[in-house]
Simulated scan of single mutants.
Amino acid sequence: MMVPPSSFVSQEEFNMFHRIDRELYTLLVINLWRDPVESMQVIALWLWLERVGFRNVVQKTLSLPYVLLNELADEAVTCLNIINNDQLASSSEGNDNALMQSLIERDLSLQFFYENRLIATQGIARIVNEVCMRALRDIMLHAIERNAAQSLADSSQVMSHSLQQPMVNRGLPEIGFGLGDLGLPWTRENEVPPDDRTMFVTFSKGYPVYEWEVMEFFTRAYGDCIESLHMQEVLPNEQSLFARIVFHSASSIEMILNGMGKAKFTINGKHVWARKFVPKRLKLSLPAAPQMDLPVSFGL
């Protein structure tokens, strides 16, 4: 479908044409609280990939659960850094776009972005200026205002909490004192939170990895270290693309990653990528997102 020149298209029509792009951007900046400016670049990157031959990137991305969408956005930022900084990531990070490759079911290495960085820079900049700034601007401003208001509220809450604390409790030395020394009872609140003991692992599409394989691999290599394992919930005939592993101790993650941000393993001949789980800040009560304009979507 041909798009008429933008000067002859009303804002409402333009938004309707880019409905799925607006919906995806809203998920990134409103639901996942990602940076609005960076996320606009992420959307532009995905739209550029569609223009150079990778089909339905936005539509496929829109179908992902939040945790995978967030991971995919992180991979997009890695690609943008390669494009903008003119520097290819180290070989140890060569699979940092594994989820993106699984999603589009085509070979799309980081080397591709490095070799095509000039055309990618020009193409992405053009999409930002001609598409994103017009189609996504209202959502971006809404997210920026929401984030500023939340930041102010958080600062006020911290200040209020600090003022309410008795002076005797301020500045207690922590080094050299255990909980028993301070006369505090040991409760589950004193333990390391599960999120800080969780690792996120992703699998290649088309090479299913099963729960028992993951359990067996890490137990054999690192002993009885797993507290719980949560595979992505899928239909019986579908493949899990990710899992969360909660360890008994946060030190297990440090030992497994061995100082790297991301590690690659081979489980029964199938590639698995692992990184520390970093939960994004999600709100149960969110301001109303900008209204989507059409119940149907149009292609680019």
Rank of each mutant, 00 (worst) to 15 (best):
G261L: 10
S228F: 08
V234W: 08
P193V: 06
D35C: 04
M133L: 15
N85M: 12
A153M: 09
I83C: 03
V3G: 05
E238H: 14
L32N: 04
M16E: 13
I175A: 11
P290Q: 07
R51P: 00
G123V: 06
G269W: 07
T219N: 12
N81V: 00
P4A: 13
D21N: 11
A149N: 11
V9K: 02
E213V: 05
Q101I: 11
F54T: 03
V67T: 06
R275P: 01
S91R: 14
R197I: 02
L257D: 01
I267K: 03
V29S: 05
P65Q: 05
P236R: 02
L257G: 01
R275M: 12
L27C: 09
V42P: 03
N85H: 11
G183P: 07
W48G: 01
L241F: 03
P193C: 06
N258R: 11
R188E: 12
N258S: 13
A44T: 04
L182I: 14
R197A: 03
S90Y: 12
R197F: 03
E115T: 13
Q101L: 05
L108T: 06
L179Q: 09
Q164A: 15
D224F: 02
D96R: 11
I30W: 07
R134V: 04
F298D: 04
A76M: 01
S90E: 14
N70C: 07
K264P: 00
P194M: 07
V272H: 00
P36D: 02
F265I: 06
E105Y: 02
P4L: 12
V58M: 02
L241W: 12
P279W: 02
A148T: 15
I256V: 06
F203Y: 06
S156V: 13
D96F: 15
K276D: 02
P5V: 07
R188Q: 11
S204F: 08
Y207D: 13
D96Y: 15
P287K: 03
F14R: 08
Q59A: 10
W33M: 05
S151M: 13
V168A: 15
V214S: 01
R51F: 00
Y114P: 05
M167Q: 15
